[in-house]
Design a protein around this nucleic acid. Structure first.
Length: 329
RNA sequence: UCCUCAUUGGGCCAA
């Protein structure tokens, strides 16, 4: 029953486990996919123990069930257990190995990941991407770029995910030359309309200090989401261009509710802080919840305190420290 | 490329 499973997946994805359970119980029958969906729901919600319980109680398991358990173990840093699941499962597929690579990578074990990657029977673009991104995330950008070239030569075509990751490596390394090269390849493949690739490019140019190029990419993007907007705001905020930040933010506000998130507001407040715009900062700060739907977090308080301090309003800054609903550190 | 499983972009931290 495909529609039942689809409904189940919908709840599981959004973390509505109790509703998911309800649907599960109401279903006339379950197949392996139904069980896997429930299993994945627990794993995504971080309920590893419950996931293990479900896994044990499953009558039929398939490769996907085991793959989900590899991910579950990896998520809580239990790589021995992840390896054990991988070792004990009767059949493997490319997802099993790639999940293991990702598990090692996200726990910082790049060499172990590479070992699994090298030994894999079969690789697809996701496997390559997982390993390339492993280098990117662990700031081994030289290796990331090298593996990117190896991927190209291996006959597996880099996709949008590959480019996003390797462009990000250039951002971290502030490697403008490689970044530009990748940008031209992105244009050749017509990937520039992708929101994630585009945002990675905006960030790359910004981190390399090329504000106008960052802005140009931003302006050309047909689709922008909250991450895209925040990226361009951060580029301006970090280079001290508060006016651009506030102008762009006015445009962003026209996008309507839900267009900003907590990080966006940190960037806006940060821009005010660095330009001594105490009044603007105060206005944004007090409106966080009501106008922007953002719960004031400790980062917002820090920005506001910083703004007040720099503006010479030490009394107000101190008052805010004393009244903030967080432990000062 | 949508019934379940793996990879990608933004502030702070890190660099």
């Amino acid at each position: 029953f495909i529609s039942w499973n689809a409904l189940l997946a919908c709840y599981a994805r959004n973390g509505h486990l109790q509703d998911g359970r309800h649907v599960f119980n109401k279903m006339p029958q379950h197949n392996c996919i139904s069980w896997n969906t429930i299993l994945q729901g627990f794993v995504q919600a971080g309920h590893t123990a419950s996931a293990k319980g479900v896994f044990q109680s499953m009558i039929q398991r398939d490769i996907a069930s085991c793959n989900i358990m590899i991910q579950a173990s990896g998520n809580c840093g239990n790589l021995k257990e992840a390896e054990l699941v991988l070792l004990k499962m009767p059949m493997h597929n490319v997802v099993s190995w790639t999940t293991m690579v990702a598990a090692y990578v996200e726990n910082g074990y790049v060499d172990e990941a590479k070992k699994v990657f090298d030994d894999m029977q079969e690789r697809n673009s996701v496997s390559w991407n997982a390993m390339i991104n492993g280098y990117t995330q662990n700031r081994l950008y030289g290796k990331a770029l090298k593996l990117f070239l190896a991927m190209d030569l291996s006959g597996t075509s880099p996709d949008k995910v590959t480019f996003a990751s390797v462009i990000d490596a250039c951002s971290t390394a502030a490697d403008l030359q490689s970044g530009r090269l990748l940008h031209s390849e992105v244009l050749q493949r017509e990937y520039e309309t992708d929101v994630v690739v585009g945002t990675a490019l905006v960030n790359m140019y910004g981190r390399c200090g090329r504000l106008s190029e960052a802005r140009w990419v931003f302006d050309e993007m047909p689709l922008k989401d909250v991450v895209t907007w925040t990226a361009i705001l951060a580029v301006y905020a970090q280079s001290g261009h508060a006016k651009e930040v506030l102008d762009l933010f006015l445009e962003l506000e026209l996008e309507g509710p839900g267009a900003v998130d907590t990080i966006t507001m940190v960037c806006v407040l940060d821009a005010c802080s660095h330009s001594g715009l105490v009044a603007d900062a105060r206005q944004y700060f007090v409106s966080l919840k009501d106008d922007y739907g953002v719960n004031p977090a400790i980062d917002h308080y820090y920005c506001m305190i910083d703004t007040l301090g720099r503006g010479g309003r030490l009394d107000k800054a101190e008052e805010l420290v004393e009244n903030m609903p967080f432990e000062p550190d």
